[in-house]
């Protein structure tokens, strides 16, 4: 327990420095792109004059020297204030807070679906390596992995929304439905199915392939032979002995993916008109909405750091040979 506490303490101190570096680098990086938000707005307005652009720059605080802007931003972030989007006339925290839940719901479900289905299919394929079911799973995994994700999304919409009319095609919930309570949950659930499946399929393929490859390595090792010689049931051998030893690469990958959950999937959110944070980030890039972009980077960085720590802890739980350090 003490080992874990000191591990956490040291990692957290390191994280503060990493975060500081990330904020500074991001700040410089977004400014390196050509143009600024005032120019984007002038470009979108279809008409502009000098005064218009200058007013915008002044309002956005872009007329100050860049080191001063950085100083102001760092001071704000240190106090937990991620700034204000002048373009959208809203505090960045509000924007992120509004767009984060739909993304987390989407990526969370997709993550669970991908992980369970991927590990199950991968195990099944590995245990039956060389049979038709292995080939079928491998082909399915390869297809889901190689097909462009937006195309899969559009095809699913065509089939289930346009042709069959079973599922809603876009959005987070029925616009103007006015549902409350459980009805609302069911409604959101129906809207979730297509995007979750689309996104889940892609990651499922990765997990299935990882699991299969890893199990194939483990399943002929001596301890498995011993287990078999002891007369254990096949299920017990697979889940207690093989899978537990084969799962580490999958955890590594899941840890990486979990850190990215918050970034959402821009493509999925675009195709399904899902009001998530991926699109907010993408739009912010195009609109040079610096504060929003930096805010999302910040929240994402925190998430990645947290999940890295959690992954290291999970390692030690799954495989006691690994110690936290």
């Amino acid at each position: 327990m003490a080992a874990i506490a000191s591990f956490l303490g040291r990692r957290l101190i390191k994280s503060v420095f990493i975060l500081f570096a990330i904020v500074v680098i991001n700040f410089m990086l977004v400014r390196a792109a050509p143009g600024d938000p005032a120019m984007v707005m002038a470009g979108e307005a279809g008409a502009a004059d000098q005064q218009y652009v200058e007013q915008l720059r002044e309002q956005f605080g872009l007329n100050r020297p860049i080191h001063e802007q950085l100083g102001i931003y760092l001071a704000d972030v240190a106090t937990g204030d991620l700034g204000y989007s002048y373009r959208q006339q809203r505090p960045v925290w509000d924007l992120i807070g509004e767009r984060l839940p739909p993304t987390l719901v989407l990526t969370g479900f997709a993550f669970v679906l991908a992980l369970t289905a991927g590990v199950l299919l991968g195990t099944l394929a590995a245990m039956r390596a060389g049979t038709w079911s292995d080939s079928a799973i491998t082909v399915l995994a390869l297809l889901s992995y190689a097909t462009p994700i937006y195309w899969v999304g559009l095809m699913l919409i065509l089939l289930f929304s346009v042709q069959l009319g079973w599922l809603p095609a876009f959005g987070y919930e029925t616009v103007g439905g006015g549902y409350e309570g459980w009805d609302r949950v069911t409604d959101i659930g129906a809207h979730l199915i297509l995007p979750v499946v689309t996104l889940g399929l892609f990651y499922m393929a990765v997990y299935a392939r990882l699991t299969r490859a890893s199990i194939l390595e483990v399943r002929d090792m001596d301890f498995v032979k011993t287990a078999r010689a002891k007369g254990l049931t096949e299920a017990r051998i697979v889940f207690r002995h093989v899978l537990r030893n084969a799962i580490l690469p999958v955890i590594t990958f899941a840890g990486i993916q979990a850190g990215h959950l918050i970034g959402g999937s821009i493509l999925i959110e675009t195709v399904f008109a899902w009001p998530g944070i991926g699109r907010l980030a993408f739009d912010a890039v195009l609109q040079r909405d610096y504060q929003v972009l930096l805010g999302i980077f910040f929240v994402t960085s925190v998430m990645v750091i947290v999940f890295n720590i959690v992954t290291d802890l999970v390692y030690s739980l799954v495989d006691p040979r690994i110690e936290v350090a």
Partner: peptide, 18 residues
């Protein structure tokens, strides 16, 4: 009136279609 934000052009065409 609801104004719907649909960022993808193919999805917009589908939304008109449905």
């Amino acid at each position: 009136i609801y104004f719907r934000v649909i960022p993808d052009a193919a999805s917009r065409a589908l939304a008109l279609e449905t």
